[in-house]
């Protein structure tokens, strides 16, 4: 990762809320993502980790512009330095920006896989070349999604991202659940191939080990906010190498580290507290933590959202 290179994607204080009916006909806004900030540079894999409900999947859907109609998005998403507007996104999706979803359910159950991978922008020849690269046999193109094995389905989903030809940003939402470690590692190698070809990869995952093994940097999410961005090496080392108390606790809780759980649980969407969302569980909490929104700041080559971090 060359420093000073312009990021492909930068997300600045992204917030997502849903308007819902609360008690009868009163509408209420439910804030689910409060302040997500990150950037993806060309040639790197940025791993996004955090527990369920921290806003990881919504981030992917917000970038791809596929949130449900009752969602409101605030904050800024820049693609190659310019705001990623609805109109601009329409021309980029499926060509420069590719989405790799979680499961085979994202394929049309009644369309043959080959035709589906070709989509509206790819060509038959490109699809065949990609299938060969991903070791998908000649018969696979004529199969329906229900006939694919777990590993085949995953490779087909990868193929949909590669078929556009000129991919600059890959957004992957939990691409490896249910795969054995060998297969998951193979999938990660395919992500590396995207990055090595110069694309930026935003890899949203539950699997911390995989993220540490194959990502360049890690963004840690907690209760709808990015709390830290660190290199994968720093996260693996844990302790003093990290900047935020939550990432330290996260790293400590890993089996290969101290396997130490922290008490309490992540606050729910809708009941996000004022100030730092982690304050209630933080050993270093002071009055200052609750005083208002904590900004993201640069620290030791990474980023952190904590008033105390040094």
């Amino acid at each position: 990762m060359a420093p000073g290179m312009e990021p492909i994607l930068s997300v600045e204080e992204l917030a997502v809320s849903f308007s819902m009916y609360d008690r009868g006909l009163r509408k209420a806004d439910l804030a689910v993502i409060r302040s997500l900030s990150l950037d993806v540079r060309p040639g790197e894999v940025l791993g996004v980790i955090g527990s369920s409900g921290s806003g990881k999947s919504l981030l992917a859907h917000a970038i791809m512009g596929i949130l449900p109609p009752n969602a409101t998005v605030r904050g800024e998403v820049l693609y190659r330095g310019e705001p990623l507007t609805e109109a601009r996104l329409r021309g980029l999706r499926g060509r420069e920006i590719a989405f790799i979803p979680q499961s085979v359910d994202y394929l049309d159950p009644l369309m043959r896989v080959g035709r589906q991978v070709v989509g509206t922008f790819g060509t038959r020849a490109a699809q065949e070349a990609i299938f060969e690269r991903y070791r998908l046999g000649a018969g696979v193109a004529r199969m329906y999604p229900f006939q694919l094995s777990g590993g085949m389905a995953r490779r087909v989903l990868f193929a949909t991202a590669a078929v556009g030809g000129d991919v600059k940003l890959v957004v992957a939402d939990e691409p490896t659940p249910g795969l054995g470690p060998d297969l998951a590692a193979k999938m990660m190698k395919h992500f590396r191939e995207f990055a090595d070809a110069g694309a930026g990869v935003l890899l949203i995952t539950h699997d911390v080990d995989l993220a540490l093994g194959y990502a360049d940097r890690i963004a840690v999410f907690y209760a709808g906010a990015t709390v830290e961005i660190a290199t994968a090496a720093e996260f693996a080392a844990g302790g003093a190498a990290l900047r935020h108390p939550y990432s330290r606790a996260f790293s400590d809780a890993l089996p290969q580290n101290r396997f130490l759980p922290i008490p309490g649980s992540q606050p729910y969407a809708g009941s996000l507290p004022e100030g730092c969302p982690f304050a209630a569980r933080c050993p270093e909490r002071t009055e200052a933590c609750l005083a208002g929104d904590v900004p993201m700041r640069d620290l030791r080559g990474g980023k952190v959202r904590c008033v105390h971090a040094a």
Binding site: D105, Y106, L107
Partner: peptide, 14 residues
């Protein structure tokens, strides 16, 4: 409302 329509949209289909 199904996932594969969402994915088609994310792949740039109108």
């Amino acid at each position: 409302g199904s996932d594969f329509i969402l994915f088609a949209r994310a792949r740039g289909e109108t």
